[in-house]
Nucleic acid binder design. Sequence first.
DNA 1: ACTATTCTGTAATAATCATTACACAATTAT
DNA 2: ATAATTGTGTAATGATTATTACAGAATAGT
Lengths: 211, 211
Amino acid sequence: MAEQELSNPSTQRRGRPREFDRTNALECAMRQFWQHGYETLSMADLTSCLGINPPSLYAAFGSKQAFFLEALDHYLATRGAYVYAMPSDQRSPRAMLAQLLQRAAEAFSDAAYPAGCFVLASISATYDSYEIEQAIVQRCQQRMSKIDELVALGVQTGELPATTNAEELAQFFVCVLQGMSLQARLGASTNQLQAIVANALQLWPQAARLR
Amino acid sequence: MAEQELSNPSTQRRGRPREFDRTNALECAMRQFWQHGYETLSMADLTSCLGINPPSLYAAFGSKQAFFLEALDHYLATRGAYVYAMPSDQRSPRAMLAQLLQRAAEAFSDAAYPAGCFVLASISATYDSYEIEQAIVQRCQQRMSKIDELVALGVQTGELPATTNAEELAQFFVCVLQGMSLQARLGASTNQLQAIVANALQLWPQAARLR
DNA sequence: ACTATTCTGTAATAATCATTACACAATTAT
DNA sequence: ATAATTGTGTAATGATTATTACAGAATAGT
């Protein structure tokens, strides 16, 4: 069912070779979907933007829905990877959460890319295709669980008081992160997002206050 | 340019009377746009949902865009009015902000309506019509300025320390509110949203700590 | 009763939507 | 050289999009 994509250049395929770079097309589609949204972006816009014709696109990706989902996963593997790309697990959970949020603040307001988070920007409205909506929600929750882990770890290591409601605190940080994406879509600057992060982190005091 | 809508029932208009209730149609359209989004919701869906035919709809509202904008303003005047409907200006700024956020927590998770905030849910993706996007952003910022006022008032009354960066703190609360809308779209319960509010409000301590 | 006005229902409009049929081009395998 | 295979370009597909032409129905004013 899934297309077998051979990355090994030595294994040449028969037939006429593809004239466009698949990854490059994926990157371009990611940006387009990110900025315009799934429903709003038409295949005509997409093909003219990519400089290729519909049959080539369909041969390479299958359908608009499959193309979007692959672009979404391309985002998760590249620009959206900062969530899991923690520098080192040696650092304290708080420092890791701080870095996660600060990286988000930078990424969301990076002028080189559409504003905010691609996954979060894709949520808002329900879609004609329930399949897409499910895929977005699932990937969103999977990513956010990283914050759950960090807060739980903070309680475990004693960095946060044992009486902390870890689920609630984690959900608070998730809420802030998601709000930051919306703020970025509305034009918030890196500095403004960083100020939000600094404020939010006050709920996880640097010096743990044990009762 | 704007349609003259006479609310006075004594001033009868000539011609065949409208067979559907205009406000009722607006309420129904609001829910539909709220749930499905502007682009996704087709006029065919809308007319069949309202039980009226396209010409009646166009005669009453003009166009899809005008219909959406009127539905948006209907939301602001009804369900979305909680932002400005503060109980009394006698209360402290903090209490007013708390009430604003708590009302949002209830409204966003009210099963009787689509989840989250209609205005915020309408942002995410850019639209074919720049006019609509501008209208949404403008109404959004106008509403959020209420939070700016409350925080500034808190500093003014001494409830918050004079060293407080009012703009940053206000933007933090706006961010939380917007994140709450997204959380609600993802299925967060009233209790969960209230817990987020409680956490956020810790940045505005009940007993003002003056340095 | 008659005219002017406004709404309603049917059915059509042109445009755009995602998708594909088909002929041809470019490659590998034999 | 020939067959098999796969990508490309042109042009079309049927469906759906927002919007409206038109004829008839229902009201108010005269």
